[in-house]
């Protein structure tokens, strides 16, 4: 019983996946709430968004939380890769003929692939905006805040960018469709009465959140303001 501490066992890895995953879901909601401000392209709206961006990058408590967030993303990815590698080793010879459609949704079996795509997306996304915001030497707006809005608006005039973001959000949607309810199951939070509710909430979350995210580039492309 050596490996039963909160590290190491297969179940422990799943707990961490679930906890970090749910934390990332929470982050998505906050991130979304902030970013929806991008839909307001009026001069006041731009200033408001820039002010918000500044607050998010400087307020100490948020800073602490953001480190937790970076850690969660990395840990979720690292843990996920570890799990996926072990899963591969668990079946060294593949089946010649397999019929996954008979017993599972395609995306539930492709969480590692979807997750890897999302990781690529996150890296590029942070390069585009987060890196620029911090070290890009961007111009400032009328209130002296870094003018992130203009950078975003410019980026989403590129059709390729827009397509990339929309596709990424589709990937996120499938990742969430399975991941949300799966996290509750991993933590043992299962009950005949509440599990169906969790599953419905998961579907709602997995559809609505990515759609709203995807709306932003599409909107900004269509209505440059």
């Amino acid at each position: 019983m050596a490996r039963t501490a909160l590290l190491g066992s297969s179940l422990t890895k799943k707990y961490w996946m679930a906890l970090t995953g749910l934390f990332l879901c929470l982050f998505l909601v906050i991130h979304l709430a902030g970013n929806l401000q991008l839909l307001d392209a009026s001069p006041e709206g731009r200033l408001k968004f820039n002010a918000y961006a500044k607050f998010m990058t400087t307020f100490p408590l948020i800073k602490v939380v953001s480190y937790l967030l970076y850690f969660s993303i990395l840990f979720h990815a690292f843990d996920g890769i570890l799990l996926a590698m072990q899963n591969r080793q668990a079946r060294p010879t593949r089946y010649v003929k397999e019929k996954p459609s008979a017993n599972r949704t395609w995306y539930s079996g492709q969480m590692a692939l979807l997750g890897s795509l999302l990781l690529v997306f996150i890296v590029l996304h942070m390069k585009h905006f987060w890196y620029e915001m911090h070290w890009g030497g961007l111009p400032v707006d009328a209130e002296g805040n870094t003018d992130l809005f203009t950078v975003v608006a410019a980026a989403f005039q590129e059709p390729l960018y827009v397509v990339f973001y929309v596709v990424a959000m589709a990937v996120l949607a499938f990742h969430l469709l399975h991941g949300f309810q799966s996290a509750f199951q991993s933590l043992g939070l299962n009950h005949p009465r509440y599990t169906p509710i969790i599953k419905n909430v998961g579907v709602f979350f997995g559809v609505v959140v990515p759609i709203l995210f995807a709306l932003i580039p599409v909107w900004m492309f269509a209505f440059p303001g």
Binding site: S10, K13, K14, L83, Q86, N87, Q89, A90, R91, P100, N103, R104, T105, S108, G109, M111, H178, Q181, S182, Q185, S186
Partner: peptide
């Protein structure tokens, strides 16, 4: 024993 990890696919 070398079994893989559950990812709740439900298969």
């Amino acid at each position: 024993e070398g079994f893989g990890n559950c990812s709740n696919t439900g298969a």
